[in-house]
Simulated assay, not measured.
Amino acid sequence: MPTTREPGLLQLLYFYFIPYWLFRDVSHGDALLREQNYRYNREQRKYLPGYLLKWAILCALLLASHQLAKELAAQVPDWEQLFRAWVLLSGIGFTVGFALMANIIVAWSFLTFMH
């Protein structure tokens, strides 16, 4: 009896936060296969607003974390380097999340309004 491997934590986080696994590649195959994949992708677009909401909440938390770390760095000079690293990482995380949100908006718009 074949057994399926349970997904690990990193794979579950990928499925929860990154929507790309939902879609099929429309650049390969004959015209019929590409059209079928495009229709499938148009059906899957309904999940994109949920991913956008997740990233908007995460980005808001990262931005708040960034501000908190900046304030703590000013108030606790002994740990300033640690808080500066926190500022850097939360800023990078926010930037990556914002870029991904822009990508999700473009994908949803394309799949919704382009026929």
Score class of each variant (00 low, 15 high):
Arg39Asn: 15
Gln44Thr: 05
Phe17Met: 12
Arg34Phe: 06
Glu6Pro: 03
Trp79Cys: 07
Arg42Lys: 15
Thr3Trp: 07
Leu72His: 01
Phe113Lys: 11
Ala107His: 04
Trp21Asn: 03
Gln44Met: 13
Arg24Val: 11
Gly8Thr: 09
His28Phe: 10
Leu68Met: 15
Tyr20Lys: 07
Ile92Gln: 04
Tyr38Pro: 00
Asp78Trp: 07
Ala85Glu: 05
Tyr20Met: 06
Gly91Gln: 01
Arg45Asn: 01
Ala73Asp: 07
Asp30Lys: 08
Leu63Asp: 03
Gly97His: 09
Ala56Arg: 13
Tyr38Ser: 04
Thr4Pro: 01
Leu61Lys: 00
Ser90Gln: 07
Cys59Ile: 05
Lys70Ser: 05
Phe83His: 06
Ile92Trp: 05
Gly29Met: 08
Ala64Cys: 09
Leu88Ala: 14
Ala56Tyr: 02
Val106Ile: 15
Asp25Pro: 06
Leu62Ser: 06
Cys59Gln: 08
Leu72Pro: 01
Gln36Ala: 15
Val76Lys: 13
Ile104Asn: 06
Trp86Glu: 03
Asn37Asp: 13
Pro19Gln: 09
Leu33Ile: 12
Ala60Gly: 13
Leu68Trp: 11
Ser90Ala: 15
Asp30Pro: 04
Ser90Lys: 05
Thr3Cys: 08
Leu9Lys: 12
His66Ala: 05
Arg34Asn: 10
Ala69Leu: 09
Asn41Ser: 03
Ala107Tyr: 04
Val96Glu: 00
Phe110Ile: 14
Arg5Asn: 04
Arg42Phe: 02
Ser27Pro: 01
Leu12Thr: 11
Leu72Ser: 00
Leu33Trp: 03
Glu35Gly: 05
Phe23Tyr: 06
Phe17Trp: 11
Gln11Asp: 07
Leu63Ser: 08
Glu35Leu: 12
Arg84Gln: 14
Tyr16Leu: 11
Phe83Ala: 03
Asn41Gln: 01
Thr112Asn: 13
Ser65Pro: 00
Gly50Ser: 13
Glu35Arg: 14
Pro77Trp: 04
Gly50Trp: 07
Phe113Gln: 05
Val106Pro: 00
Ala73Gln: 11
Pro19Phe: 01
Ala102Gln: 03
Thr3His: 14
Ile105Asn: 02
Ser109Tyr: 08
His66Gln: 07
Asp30Ile: 04
Tyr38Thr: 10
Leu32Met: 06
Gln36Met: 09
Leu53Pro: 00
Arg34Met: 07
Ala73Ile: 01
Phe83Pro: 01
Gly91Lys: 02
Ala31Gly: 03
Pro7Lys: 05
Glu80Leu: 03
Asp78Phe: 11
Leu111His: 00
Leu58Tyr: 12
Val87Ile: 12
Leu52Arg: 10
Val26Leu: 04
Ala102Gly: 15
Leu52Asp: 03
Ala99Gly: 02
